[in-house]
Design a protein around this nucleic acid. Structure first.
Lengths: 147, 147
DNA sequence: GGCTATTAAATTGTATACAATCTATTTGCT
DNA sequence: AGCAAATAGATTGTATACAATTTAATAGCC
């Protein structure tokens, strides 16, 4: 590719990923609205539905988000009555996030979302999985870089 | 995939794309900082370097961004002296964005960025292009959906 | 021509993201 | 024990994103 082509927006992998991410989020929006959640709040709960009781630090590692994003987000979910934030007695530096009854129950209603989305988007589960694996590979590659 | 697996974060295509997008942007950050640009400002200029003089509307279609995001961003780039915002005489509803001398010149320095990135990330141009094509396909699919 | 619908930007309000910094706690070392 | 370095969250400041609404201008229709 010549020097001019590499600067073309349509040739840039990063832009494709960036635009795709935002369009995907828009697709989630109406479905999540029914649950009263934003996308970031939703993926935070996904992690907790898999494994309840987790430090902010570990949550951040799973979501690739730092405390600057998570702290206000978790405070909001706490105010909504979906989780609790409690200092770890063993290590007072950490804060343990745990689902409330209500937060745990919300999982039932969230189950339908992934399927609805695939149907809407017309993406087959097989090709979705193939693409997800490739993107995850790249994510690991990009994330591991020494800054 | 069973009902529980679809809710697992690591199985979700959307999350992979979302996390990858943010990690990619972080990779750009130090390189763009040298030019005094953010990622969104950079891709806006990419479009204008390809085709100068364009309405906010058209710019938004290329970038998948709306006026709510673009208006403040373009005002900032205007203040930085990189572009001008002028009402279209033919259609006073539109605003035409045009590069200044300085904005056009910045392209020279931006040329190096894509190559530096690929080297850093250890992604071969060939696999990047293959992945970009797949993601763009999905983007089109997701974006065309009737809301 | 005159009125309604549509369109393009701008504005408003809410929710992220993240770099950089700060605070409190704990670890590791002597 | 005592202290420097490291760690986990919280805070601050800046820059997006985007839904929803508003404003101004144009297009379409009678």
């Amino acid at each position: 590719m010549d020097t001019d082509s590499v600067l073309k927006l349509d040739n840039q992998l990063c832009f494709a990923v960036y635009a795709c991410s935002r369009e995907f989020t828009k697709l989630y929006h109406p479905l999540l609205k029914e649950l009263g959640l934003t996308y970031t709040q939703y993926i935070t709960l996904l992690v907790l539905w898999e494994e309840d009781r987790m430090s902010v630090k570990k949550l951040g590692e799973r979501l690739y988000l730092d405390s600057g994003t998570l702290t206000p987000l978790l405070k909001k979910l706490e105010n909504m009555g979906l989780l609790t934030r409690v200092r770890d007695k063993q290590d007072e530096r950490s804060v343990i996030i745990a689902l409330t009854e209500q937060g745990a129950r919300l999982k039932e209603r969230a189950i339908e979302i992934p399927e609805k989305l695939f149907c809407q988007a017309g993406i087959s589960p097989k090709e979705a999985e193939a693409l997800r694996a490739q993107i995850t590979d790249m994510l690991k590659k990009v994330q591991k870089l020494p800054l």
